[in-house]
Design a protein around this nucleic acid. Structure first.
Lengths: 139, 139
DNA sequence: AACGCCTACTTTCAATTTGCAAGCAGACTT
DNA sequence: AAGTCTGCTTGCAAATTGAAAGTAGGCGTT
């Protein structure tokens, strides 16, 4: 989406949210971290959505600069970094589930994970809390 | 955000959702329709966020083509059109509230409407249902 | 019925962003 | 010491955006 550099800052929390994560690739990265448990650059790059490497680097830097994710060296492999969500980032779990739910309901070619959708319908808030907790535990 | 023309279609409902409304301006338009009750081109244009007229026209066409909104002549003023959300579009109410909630929690310069946030915390689902119903009633 | 004004766009064009491909640097492995 | 793995950076062309001006048809007024 939109320029990651230019801040709009209309003083509206909604617009702030969009500045921070309101573009396709940022949302997909967060989805992958939250729902798939992805942690490395390579995982994001080959996640199937086809993000370009320069865009990925840009988005990761932007998300980190805004405090949604943090990166640390992998203790077991010094050439790799491990990314993880902060609480600010993990608090997007409910939003991610709403997006998934809407998509599953209206996507004409829906091939949604039945198990995931069932859990969302069953108890959204509890599922979101669990995803958040799991993400934070991966720290 | 993202190109409105190119479809990614990875078969994932999440990606479908992003194709349909996953960019800054589409989300702001839907927010204005849902929370502010905006209905005309002119209202969107002068909503304070500063969308360019060509982008607005493009987004409205895209949202209509994807069945989230519909447009009709204003019976009381033939040079004006009235836009309204379909059920598919109004079903984004919960998602909009999640974005607003997150933004209000983390925006350092938050000047959120207290009343709106209070209602979200009080009973998200009920508030979302009310917004949806009100939007559909504006048909 | 002519004139201007209102409302919703369309067009033009420069600037920004994206996407692809190749290249680079530091950390392991052999 | 050489090759590989991992995470980026760089260079460009193509696509998207944004600003500004222009177009079209409905309305109101004269």
């Amino acid at each position: 989406m939109p320029g990651r550099r230019k801040k709009r800052d209309t003083g509206c929390p909604f617009a702030y949210a969009l500045d921070v994560f309101g573009d396709r690739w940022s949302l997909l990265i967060i989805r992958d971290m939250l729902l798939q448990g992805f942690r490395t650059y390579g995982q994001f790059l080959s996640s199937g959505e086809g993000i370009a490497t320069n865009i990925l680097a840009d988005r990761l830097a932007h998300l980190e600069a805004n405090g949604l994710i943090r990166k640390q060296r992998d203790p077991e492999n010094g050439r790799r970094y491990l990314y993880h969500l902060t609480e600010k980032g993990a608090d997007l779990a409910p939003l991610m589930l709403e997006i998934a739910r809407w998509g599953a309901k209206y996507d004409p070619a829906s091939t949604a994970h039945e198990s995931v959708m069932a859990r969302i319908d069953e108890d959204r808030a509890a599922y979101a809390a669990e995803l958040k907790a799991r993400a934070l535990a991966r720290d």
